[in-house]
Design a protein around this nucleic acid. Structure first.
Length: 376
RNA sequence: GGGAAGUUCGUAUAGUGGUCAAUUACGGGAGACUGUAAAUCUCUUGCUUCGGCUUCGGUGGUUCGAAUCCAUCACUUCCCA
């Protein structure tokens, strides 16, 4: 993996860069659609590539490990081949599941034991086993095993959790260095800053993460329910410490406004289920604001879905038609909304990049973010 | 022609003397969703100037009190001719 900063915005901490992986070139800032189990829900690969123009998508180690399982992925020759996606892939480690499946797991120094949400069977993830699993998956970016702390979270818990995450990281880095990619191309290993909403813990964590000298770094444990301002504050603290010449990935974020604010604070990579999940639930993000397609007001609005949209669904379908499909609970509604939202997110980061490069980002961002988050 | 059952808030239903403006589902309206156990979840759904008001096919009655009991009318469904 290689990262070059093309331009740094003098007015904010935003940067426009270029990441190169074995699976292509990624201009940053970038948004990465989430494809947990080897599928961006409701969107097939050709749409992802040709209509949405995603450069990189996510997979999830925990979910892929349970299903289809590593045996199948090894036989397939890795996830890229299995799902027939020749662009980049980043895999989350299962750290988010340590958080979201809290009732079914137990954390120890060694690692974390899970009960499968599918059949209740018991499994253990260690920092080492996760590296091995991600080697089999063959992701371009492998996330380290961490604990994504919940919110609210006491200082004591956050501090203790951070200690474990750091211990796990040191072992993961060691194992990463001792192992080789299985498919002949480079795989980056990303450490994750934790520390909940506590500034001193975030500083401590960012320093430790920076000291690992990995190719890129991530910030986790945010957008889990804390106020947005708290999140922005943590990003600023952490990005003041993480090396400037390496990509910074803010995990699980977020709304269009969150992304704009994140970029302004020096984030290069984002992922979030919001465009797909909210899309499936009838919500559209547009440059003019958000739309709830279930709302009665779209009933006889036969105008095109999003006049400013960049994907074909925006001009091919009407608001009234999508409202009908959504209310009728037709699967096509989820597909159209997911394609629209992902295309919007990718167009958003593209516009952010363009504005960083032409110097209009700082003046544009507040008004644009505000508008995008209004309900229309 | 004879016999039986039924009529409840958009629809289908629950409710068989006071705890009933009335159950549940669907339908309708709105909201939520942030490294996906989510095509999910939540709220709301007679009117209201929030004091109340008017509702359970119509009318009349019994009763302190009726969606619930009685009479009658109307309508609906089923069975036998």
């Amino acid at each position: 993996m290689n990262f070059e900063i093309a331009y740094s915005d003098p007015k904010t901490n935003a940067r426009a860069g270029v990441i190169t992986t074995a699976h292509g070139v990624i201009e940053t800032p970038i948004f990465m659609p989430v494809g947990t189990v080897g599928s961006v829900k409701g969107v097939h690969q050709r749409e992802l590539r040709d209509d949405i123009d995603a450069k990189i998508i996510l997979g999830n180690t925990y979910h892929l490990y349970l299903r289809p399982g590593m045996d199948i992925l090894r036989q397939a020759g890795g996830l890229h081949k299995f799902i027939n996606w020749d662009r980049s892939i980043l895999t989350d480690s299962g750290g988010f599941q340590v958080f979201s499946l809290a009732e079914n797991r137990k954390i120890t120094d060694k690692g974390v034991t899970f009960r499968s949400h599918i059949d209740g069977s018991k499994h253990i993830f260690t920092p080492e086993s996760v590296v091995d699993t991600e080697r089999i998956i063959g992701s371009d970016f492998m996330m380290a095993l961490d604990e994504c702390t919940p919110y609210p979270c006491t200082y004591e818990y956050a501090a203790k959790s951070l200690e474990i995450t750091h211990k796990w990281l040191a072992r993961g880095v060691k194992h990463y260095k001792e192992t080789e990619p299985l498919y002949g191309y480079d795989q980056a290993y990303l450490p994750i800053v934790q520390g909940s909403v506590y500034k001193d813990l975030r500083i401590k964590s960012a320093e430790f993460i920076a000291s690992q000298e990995m190719q890129a770094n991530a910030i986790g444990g945010l957008s889990v329910g804390e106020p947005a301002e708290k999140m922005y504050e943590m990003i600023e603290v952490v990005n003041g410490i993480l090396p400037k010449d390496k990509p910074r990935y803010l995990m699980g974020v977020g709304t269009p406004a969150n992304i704009i604010e994140g970029v302004a604070r020096g984030i290069d990579m984002f992922d979030c289920v919001m465009p797909t999940r909210n899309g499936r639930n009838g919500m559209l993000f547009t440059s003019e604001g958000t739309m709830n397609m279930k709302n009665e007001k779209w009933k006889n609005d036969f105008s095109e879905l999003d006049p400013n949209g960049t994907s074909f669904v925006d001009h091919y379908y009407s608001k009234a038609y999508l409202r009908h499909l959504t209310v009728a609970n037709e699967r096509l509604a989820a597909q159209i909304a997911s394609i629209h939202n992902l295309a919007f997110y990718l167009a958003l980061v593209k516009e952010i990049r363009r504005r960083i490069l032409d110097g209009t980002f700082a003046d544009w961002k507040d008004g644009a973010a505000k508008k995008m988050m209004e309900r229309i």
